[in-house]
Write a protein that binds this DNA or RNA. Structure first.
Lengths: 150, 150
DNA sequence: TCTAGATTATTGCATTTGCAACTATTGTCA
DNA sequence: TGACAATAGTTGCAAATGCAATAATCTAGA
């Protein structure tokens, strides 16, 4: 029998919102949002990325990301380049300052995660991550809202 | 070694966003948002609730919820009452129409959940839920943003 | 080669959201 | 009892968000 408060989507959202709230507060003094942090951390991981790829990774609309990257660029935390061999895409990279900031913030993320999973074993955490990845891949990506083939 | 794309907060957000997107699309024809559905489903579960309690359950700001419940009330899906013995609080209840709509939508939520966890065993799903609840309780509630005692 | 279509990002616009301020009511304790 | 504090909800306002439309570039087929 179905109960909202025992359903996976609900519990997922609840945990996700809370963890994001806590992290948002920690990075607020640097005037960063959680999405901004994810962009920076992603670039630290991959060195460079296009807007579209970043949008996929960060799970936000590309239009939102365009503006978000714009403000990061204004603050000299990232650079935006249109390659000569491809004038459509925009390559985003960390600046040295962006990299320094990211390195300073990552330990906070590590600590937050440790707090969140504090009473779980390594196996439990691994199972959790696996489940989260599975659910993501079990659901359609649906970029063009109500689109069914074409 | 830390990797954003292997961190729990990131994976949590990614799965949560995607599952919410899919559900949002399914209930869009009824002009409902996911938060609205959660309010309705919560009231179906508890019969009645105050705004503050609903805000906690649904994980949104009470100001947002106030407006959200306002539009639900305008559509006659819920009723708002200030009890005579307590003029501060507002009791929200489902109307018959709201109940009918909720009953119609709940199977969609069930099916979505089934799709999301399709390749997991009952034990795995139970462990997932347990982990999600734990993380939620492991993190501070922080209603008043940067507040530390007083 | 030239054109129609696809891809990628940006911008306009309306909606949603959250924080802060405010109102109203209730609780407390001197 | 009376005043001050605490609680509950609403509203103003600015910021963030998403969708749709647009611009610019690239790709592919005739």
């Amino acid at each position: 029998m179905y109960k909202l408060t025992d359903s996976v989507p609900y519990l997922l959202n609840r945990a996700g919102v809370r963890i994001a709230e806590v992290f948002a507060q920690r990075i607020a003094e640097d005037n960063l949002s959680v999405a901004m942090y994810r962009v920076l951390a992603m670039l630290k991981e991959r060195r460079e990325s296009t807007l579209g790829d970043l949008a996929d990774v960060v799970s936000v609309e590309i239009s939102t990301l365009s503006r978000l990257v714009g403000t990061l660029a204004k603050r000299k935390l990232v650079s935006r380049t249109r390659p000569e061999d491809n004038g459509r895409i925009v390559i985003v990279r960390l600046t040295p300052q962006g990299e320094a900031l990211t390195e300073r913030l990552m330990p906070l993320a590590v600590e937050l995660e440790r707090t969140a999973v504090q009473d779980m074993s390594d196996e439990e955490v691994a199972a959790l991550k696996k489940a989260l990845r599975r659910m993501h891949s079990n659901l359609p990506a649906m970029s063009g809202k109500g689109k069914v083939a074409s």
